Amino acid sequence: MDLRTIKEELSFLKDTKSGLEFLSAEYDRMKKELKTSEEHIKSLLAENSNLHTKVNELSNRLVLLEQYSRETNIEVNGVPESKTENLINVAIQICNTVSISTDVIEPATCTRVRKMNESNKRPRAITIKHLSVKTCDEILAPVTKFNKKNASNKLNTGHLGYI
């Protein structure tokens, strides 16, 4: 072999060595980056899991709060709607029909609630909100008694003067 060939071989080996060093450095950099990414993913997974738990806890709490906020409500369905209706009078008619004092209605707030399905032909429900659960019970117990006593003609709009 001549000297020129040896120099070419050495130059080729130096280029190869420099290429391998570059590739080795890139490999080390990518390995470090991968490790950092894996740690970041683990951290995000843990955070995601914690957030899911928190969302479930808050959803459950919201359901309980919504139930608690409605525990003083009485819902009346099937009463025809009128532009000139007085919902307090509807509540008073119910009290008169089941023979209870209309005093329990006085602090109540009566409203029609929005339909869940707008295409439904039934009238919107009436919600009667009272100040206490005790007041609701003072109304619901006589209504239940009335319905048991009149099993074949339970409380309906006919009893309230609607035909």
Rank of each mutant, 00 (worst) to 15 (best):
E47H: 13
G78A: 12
K32I: 08
V76T: 14
P80L: 01
A46T: 15
R122L: 15
E26W: 00
N73Q: 09
L131R: 10
E75C: 14
M1G: 08
C136D: 02
L140C: 12
I94G: 10
P123Q: 05
T111A: 09
E138Q: 15
L160V: 13
T97D: 02
E33W: 05
E85F: 00
A91W: 07
S11M: 10
L44Q: 10
P142M: 06
K42N: 11
M30C: 09
G158H: 13
K7E: 03
S49N: 15
S24F: 01
T5M: 04
I128G: 04
I126P: 03
G19D: 09
A141F: 11
S49P: 04
K115H: 06
T109G: 06
N150W: 02
L140W: 08
N77A: 12
L20P: 00
I126G: 05
K7S: 03
G19F: 00
R4G: 11
N50Y: 06
S59C: 14
E38I: 10
S101G: 09
A108T: 09
E39T: 06
S101I: 05
Y27F: 06
K121L: 14
P80R: 01
T135M: 15
A125Q: 12
Q67M: 05
T135Y: 00
T97Y: 04
R4V: 04
T97H: 04
V55A: 04
E47T: 14
K35L: 05
S49H: 12
T36H: 08
I126A: 05
M116C: 09
L45M: 12
S11W: 00
I163E: 14
E39H: 02
M1E: 07
E85A: 06
R4C: 07
Y27L: 13
A46H: 13
V143A: 08
K83M: 08
V133L: 06
Y27T: 10
Y27I: 09
R122C: 13
G78T: 11
T53W: 01
N56W: 01
L160A: 10
D15Y: 00
I92C: 14
K129T: 06
K115Y: 04
I94R: 14
L64S: 11
L64M: 12
S152I: 08
R112S: 03
S82F: 05
D137G: 02
T127N: 10
R112L: 03
I100P: 03
L51D: 00
E118D: 07
P107F: 03
E8K: 11
G19H: 04
A25C: 01
E138T: 12
T111Q: 12
R114L: 04
H130P: 04
R112V: 03
S119W: 08
S18R: 01
E118V: 15
E9S: 07
